[in-house]
Structures are given as C-alpha cells and as structure tokens.
C-alpha cells in the first residue's frame, strides 16, 4: 500500500510543480542578491541572508528561511490535506476501502507518503540552494557565525564566532533540515487530521494554515504568553541556533518536543476518527 501511495504521489503533476516552485524561489532570491550585491542588513529580511554574500555554503540555510514562513507550510498542508479528503472528494476512498485496504493501513501509507514528500521538499530546497549558493557566491569558509544571524536574540553586533569548516556547516545544515522537516510534519499532522474530518481537500489545507496563522499571531502577543510555549510555530525558527557557535540546544530541543507532541496527538486523533467514521463520500 505504501508503494501505491508513493506511486500516486509521484504521478501527480502537482507534487512536482510544488517542488519546482519551492526550489525556484530561493534561486530567484539568490540571483537578485548576487546581481545587486545588496543583501538585507542584519536584522531585516530572511534569516541568514545577509551572511550569504560572504559564503555561498550558508545559502541552504538562508533558502530554508525564505521558504519556511509560507511556501513550505502551504505545500505540506496541501499534500496532507489532500491525503484522505482528496480520495473522498474524488470518490476513490470507498473503492480503496472496499478493496479492501484497512483504514489504519491506508492512513499509515498516507503518512509515509507525506513524510517522504516533506523530507524531499526540504532536502531538495537545501540541495538546490547549496548548488546555487556555491555557483553565485563561492564557497569561502565562513568567518562570522553568530554575528551574521539576523533573528538572533543575542546581540548581533559582535563577530565573535569562530570559523566554521565546510563539514561543520554541512552537519549543521543537516540538523536544520531535520528540524524543519519535523516542524513541517507538525503542520502535516494537523492537515491530515482535518483531512479525515472533511471531504474537501481544500478545506483541510486551509484549516491547517488557519491554525498556523492563529499560532503566529498568538506568538507575538504578550497577552497570550501563557500559551506561548505550546504554540506550534513558537520554535519554528529555533533551527537558526544550529548556526551559532557553540550550538544553542535549548530551543531546538523544545522545538523538537513540541512538534513531536503535535504530531503524535494529531495522528492519534486522525486515526481514532478515521477508523470509526462512516464513509459516505
């Protein structure tokens, strides 16, 4: 069944279009920055972008920062929201279940396909960004780490960081990729849950995005500080800490933990609802 779901994912033009768009945006940004040599000053614009002029090997991280706020969650929410609701909407769900495909098995296969899509999206963005970065900005060793960080809570003025070797950057980028992938799975789990509730794929995707926007609003709201640590987007940018020297683990760990809880809770809810639901689509 997992194979079937992967084949379905791969044979959908939409999957490829979304991946191309995801990879295309950072390339576009890189071209503009490379042509004009005008990176946003530290503290403005996407995280890490100001540092890439000094070395292209930081560009994967910058690229992830570019797609993270909207593009990536939208793509993941659309795929996850489509998983059950899409089958229901096209009427194929009843035939799949009558094949028979067990409901739990179907949900698990959908989840695997979603994980594969999310991972490929994040990794593809990182890889294309790395190639773009090296081609446009060169691969000088990175001198400034903490100093180049724009969304840093630490004073971004000192160039205190020690040099990072290419291997070091690669490792840190892998860490960032893993963190972002898990964050996106949190979004995916919410969308998947909504996807078992509604028969409209669009509704499920938009519902998940609405949840994210709500979270984004509450994160910035002092009055909501009581719930702040539990919001799904609270630690989304914590992966930037991978590029500090030494790595600041506190928020990264919390980020993993929060996303893990979201993924588990929403997957359990999806399963509980889908396994007992009347299929009337």
């Amino acid at each position: 069944m997992i194979r079937v779901e992967l084949v379905k994912l791969a044979r959908r033009p939409r999957s490829w279009v979304s991946l191309v768009l995801l990879c295309g945006l950072p390339v576009l940004v890189a071209v503009f920055v490379a042509v004009t040599h005008l990176a946003p000053p530290p503290g403005q614009g996407p995280a890490l972008l100001s540092a890439v002029l000094s070395s292209g090997s930081l560009y994967p991280a910058a690229a992830l920062a570019i797609v993270l706020p909207i593009f990536l969650p939208v793509a993941v929410a659309v795929v996850a929201g489509d998983s059950i609701a899409g089958e229901a909407g096209s009427g194929t769900l009843r035939y799949l279940l009558a094949r028979p495909v067990g409901r739990t098995r179907l949900l698990a296969a959908k989840l695997v396909a979603l994980v594969v899509y999310t991972l490929s999206a994040v990794i593809l963005v990182a890889v294309t960004a790395y190639l773009t970065g090296i081609a446009l900005f060169g691969a000088q060793p990175v001198a400034a780490t903490a100093g180049g960080l724009t969304t840093s809570n630490i004073a971004a003025t000192s160039l205190s960081g020690s040099g990072l070797s290419p291997a070091d950057i690669a490792l840190r980028t892998i860490g960032a990729v893993a963190f972002i992938a898990v964050s996106m799975l949190g979004v995916g789990a919410i969308a998947l849950f909504l996807s078992t509730i509604t028969d409209s794929a669009l509704g499920a995707a938009l519902g998940a995005l609405a949840a994210l926007i709500t979270s984004e609003v509450l994160v910035t709201l002092n009055a909501a500080s009581a719930v702040n640590p539990y919001l799904p987007t609270r630690y989304w940018l914590a992966w930037i800490d991978f590029f500090r020297d030494p790595i600041v683990w506190r928020n990264i760990e919390r980020g993993f933990a929060v996303q893990g809880v979201y993924v588990l809770v929403f997957l359990a809810a999806s399963w509980a609802h889908f396994a007992t639901k009347d299929i009337t689509s």
Partner: peptide, 17 residues
C-alpha cells in the same frame, strides 16, 4: 471483501491517470 466486487454510487477513478 477480497471476494466481493463492488460499484457504489457511480464509478470513480483518478482523473489524471
């Protein structure tokens, strides 16, 4: 179910395939 063939409320298929 493996011994049953069914057609429920009209056929459906993946339109792009």
């Amino acid at each position: 179910l493996p011994s049953i063939g069914s057609l429920v409320e009209g056929p459906s298929a993946y339109g792009h395939l």
